[in-house]
Design a protein around this nucleic acid. Structure first.
Lengths: 235, 235
DNA sequence: TTATCCGTATGACAAAAATCATACTACTGC
DNA sequence: GCAGTAGTATGATTTTTGTCATACGGATAA
């Protein structure tokens, strides 16, 4: 857990696509002063489900998965975070413990803002509050849609949807076809909400169909149209 | 859609268990002046999924279901609201359209606060913002848990959990055993995320076991412990 | 009253997906 | 280089769940 050079929030490239996009400069300077910047290596845990929240995590670089543990100990990935995303603020806001664990999917740079500072910033800047509410509302909408799809769609459709979601979230690599994130088959299954074997089987099937191409953990989308069709998406 | 006697927010009993519990009196008076109070009969729709939000709905009395329509047209109930709950504020906050439809499960009294007034109140009262964020955070946590259970638990467990949830949400009737809400079997299925026949079958099974007792739409919980056990809940 | 319809119930069957078993592969540490 | 281990792959089987068919009861309307 090395520290990295302190990035000023004001100069942070990610800020513009985050809840801090409209935050007052003075408030921002205050946040910047009180934060610490840490490098997490692949597999490192930022915080644990059930733990007490001490602040919020702002992703500067890297990819993080957020997962909840089910009754039988099985992991369910509930969110994937990318640079600009803020994590742990929900627990801070609701005063509850962390609902999920955050684990780095690759080496990541993350800024930590202590709880009190974040609350202070919220109180001091109406825009930050509004942006936060906006984000929460949006995430809640997405959660409702995910609930609906989990309840109603077959695994095959959900898997296709998951691949499209990964592409939307992290984009493609330089080649313009490979999804720019490397997940284990188990992670994919835990994201889709199915057994690992089923996820592997369906990926193989898509591979055979020529819809995707598998190279180890790399997934290349060959036929985006077909994949969208399989996902059965309206709109 | 009759109007009912204007209830002053200040005097509203439900306020204390709502996001308005700590709201400034002046702001509250302002809201109170601009709102309208409407009676919705059982089956009436407050707002439609996909519609533009014009304000927020504050439930004074009654019960409302919020549902999302899946790709194949099947309904998924994503939330059940009771007096004190506020609906439609997410769409107002995120500037998106309504993600769900709201339908009255029984005759209900609902106050409507225009969008501009609500936003104004949020800006004018930090406490209201904080309470709103707190509520959103809490709901998001619940959504994540629901996602996990939907992905991992068998239908039987989810159904038991659903009955416990109904009891938690609406309580018992005077007899202290019948769940104080009447849902069709289809509604229950759409809440659990299963086929109507499956829900009916499993309810019959619980009835045969002596865990619950069915009298038309009334569901009496005979053995709360057994039901909790079937639901397979940790904590 | 009777016809009709909707919600409920139940059986039979089909489909989907999980589980179990067993290889195979690719990486890790020694 | 080799052993060991974790991740990946695939087949066989069972379990779960959805679908289809049918029937029954209670409500409503002619």
């Amino acid at each position: 857990m090395k520290q990295f050079d302190h990035v000023h929030c004001e100069q942070c490239q990610q800020r513009h696509s985050s809840i801090f996009c409209n935050t007052d400069h003075e408030v921002l300077a205050d946040l910047s002063d009180s934060k610490s910047c840490t490098v997490y290596k692949k597999g490192d845990t930022l915080f644990h489900e059930g733990g007490h929240p001490f602040g919020v995590y702002c992703i500067n670089a890297g990819k993080i998965k957020l997962s909840v543990t089910g009754e039988e100990g099985k992991e369910q990935i509930v969110r994937l975070a990318k640079p600009g995303d803020v994590l742990g603020y929900r627990a801070v806001l609701s005063g509850e413990r962390y609902a999920a664990s955050a684990v780095a999917l690759e080496d990541s740079k993350v800024c930590f803002i202590p709880k009190e500072q974040f609350i202070k910033a919220l109180k001091g800047d109406g825009n930050l509050s509004l942006e936060t509410m906006k984000l929460l509302s949006h995430q809640l909408r997405e959660a409702d849609i995910k609930i609906t799809h989990l309840a109603q769609k077959p695994v095959r459709e959900r898997l296709a949807e998951c691949l499209l979601f990964l592409k939307e979230t992290y984009g493609f690599e330089q080649d313009g076809a490979c999804i720019a994130v490397q997940l284990s088959r188990e992670d994919i299954a835990n994201l889709v909400g199915t057994a690992t074997e089923t996820a592997i089987r369906l990926l193989s099937e898509l591979n055979r169909d020529g819809t995707i191409e598998l190279h180890g953990k790399k997934i290349k989308i060959l036929d985006l149209k077909a994949l969208t069709h399989i996902a059965n998406i309206t709109g």
